[in-house]
Amino acid sequence: MDERMRVVLAGADVDAVVDLGCDLADAGRQEDALVCFERAVELGGDWVWGNVGNTLLELDRPLEAAEAYRRAAAAGETDAWVHLGHLLESLGDLDGAAGAFAAAGESGLPEGFVELAHLRHDRGDLPGADAALTRAGEDPQAFALRACWEWEATLDPQLEPRLRAGAAVSGAARAALAALLLLTRRAGQAQQQLELGAKLGQRECWLPLGNLLAESDIDAAEAAYTAGIAAGDAYCHHNLALLLLERGNRQRAEFHLAAGAAAGDDLARRALRDLPRD
């Protein structure tokens, strides 16, 4: 690969440089990947700014990544607005994130309005969240999210058809469907839905699956929480920690509470604070 890098970087084929950068990134060589992507930009591939942003983020250089995403968006890569929005949200710049998501939507990407709806909903701006979903039009994610929020507000079993329809595109909708099935005493069907969602990569399904399994199979519950953490659901740290405490494994429990607290989970933070000290 080093020889390939020497040859490709000496040329002027943008696609070849980008392909090499992607291969280097897949191999964990992020610094070398960045060299390739920046070279592709120099050769006129402004659309490659998105790759530059992704790589800078992998290298823990978020402010530079944000600028790279802005340049990618200016070059017409509308999904860069979504990446920028998520990055700014993680940095605590919620107004900037809202602006980026709105820009994505206005550029023709309904996902931007869906993410804007999520952000406004999390901030307690329910009318604003509803308005953002309306702007997403007939987007399936917007349809699923609206059904989820109605379920959270009403626990109305008549939402089952809408949640079933939304489950195909939304882990949140599938998790809500499972909650509805549990409420209407169909635990077996609920578990089947959560297991299916987990297999499909819907990370929202791991936490409720672990909770359901914890009633009968502690080992399976632990595996579910662990898989949820690997999938990016930081809230699984708290529930896994509680299970570990029941098993007497305080050291691992404290580790997971600290990890959950660091990720912003208030339940994990309070549990860590209230953990009895020796």
Rank of each mutant, 00 (worst) to 15 (best):
L267G: 02
S90R: 14
L116C: 02
L109P: 10
P110K: 11
A259T: 06
S216Q: 03
A261Y: 10
D95A: 15
A271I: 01
L183A: 12
S107E: 07
R135V: 13
Y69S: 04
L212F: 01
G108K: 14
E204C: 03
R4A: 09
L182T: 04
L91N: 11
E160S: 13
V35H: 05
A263S: 12
A179I: 01
F113N: 01
R250Y: 08
A136N: 08
V169I: 13
W149V: 13
D266P: 05
G232K: 10
A144I: 05
A167V: 14
A261V: 08
G260C: 14
R185Y: 03
A231G: 09
D156V: 06
D2L: 11
L159K: 09
R61A: 11
A131W: 00
I218W: 09
D265C: 13
A175D: 05
G248H: 04
F101W: 14
E58C: 10
G92R: 14
D32Q: 06
Q189M: 11
V48K: 01
H238M: 06
L59M: 06
A241H: 04
E204R: 14
G232F: 01
L109T: 13
T134E: 13
D46V: 02
A147H: 05
A223F: 00
A165G: 11
L159W: 06
R252D: 09
L242R: 09
F101C: 12
Y225D: 02
V17D: 02
P110C: 12
V169Y: 06
A187N: 00
G44T: 07
A142C: 12
A136F: 03
A131N: 09
R4W: 03
A129M: 07
H256N: 12
A16L: 07
L91F: 10
A12F: 15
A176E: 03
T55N: 03
Q251V: 15
Y69M: 05
G28P: 01
G166M: 13
L196M: 13
